[in-house]
Amino acid sequence: MRIPPKITQALAVLILGTATLVTVVVLVLIIAFVLKRGVPEISWEFLSTKPQEMGKAGGILPTIVGTVLLPLIAIVIALPMGVGTAVYLSEYTRENRVTKIIRFGTDCLAGIPSIIFGLFGYIFFVTILGMGWSMLSGGLTLAIMILPTIIRTSEEAIRAVPQAYREVSCSLAATSWETVHKVVLPNALPGIMTGVMLGIGRSIGETAAVIFTAGSSLMMPTSLNDSVRTMSVHFYLLAREGISNEKAYATAAVLVFAVLFVNLTAYWMMNRFIAKRSS
């Protein structure tokens, strides 16, 4: 028996619509649940004091500092490498075997699970290079992890710069380098910043790669060689070791705000960039 097309159409819309609704509702509920439990626990004192008894009491100040510093270190390292790669791919070469290798490497790197980055960082930076559990080890590991994101967004941003800009620059007898740093990069900057924010967002949420490289010290870091604990790691330890559910929820809420803020900024920048380009 053939079902009339009108009925299959209605059925399809119903089923697909339900699936979409379930997806959106589940994802939104998770955030809502965390915020509902966590927000009442947040106070100025929670944000501005040191934790006591491994986080059972007190605040999360050192982990906030860790959450700000570690992604910053990662960005400082990854940004020049990522933008440099993007500039090379889009300004200095055509598609050939070399760019194929570079693209393949970037794509592969993007797919590697964070625990592998953690293992690598632990053996390479922490042990072999003797950096120990430190902000430097953690930052370097995160830098490699977010490199593909930076490369991709930067390349897109650079390719979005109109060809005419480069031609004008060339016609004024500028060298490739002058064209790149005076014309292309300034115009691609908002797009590149989107990648930066996405990279920071990913670093903030990362746990597996950080816990084995930056450690989990609750002390306030004073140098690059100090171990730090980020909010994600702190939250993981609070929840997993059952130290304090209230503090875990509160930390989770702060974490959600941080990630949403960073990602929304990225999104806003991207939209502004696209709007400017298409006008």
Partner: peptide
């Protein structure tokens, strides 16, 4: 972008 540990906690 929501950290994976949050999903675990849920």
């Amino acid at each position: 972008g929501i950290p994976s540990v949050l999903y675990g906690f849920m």
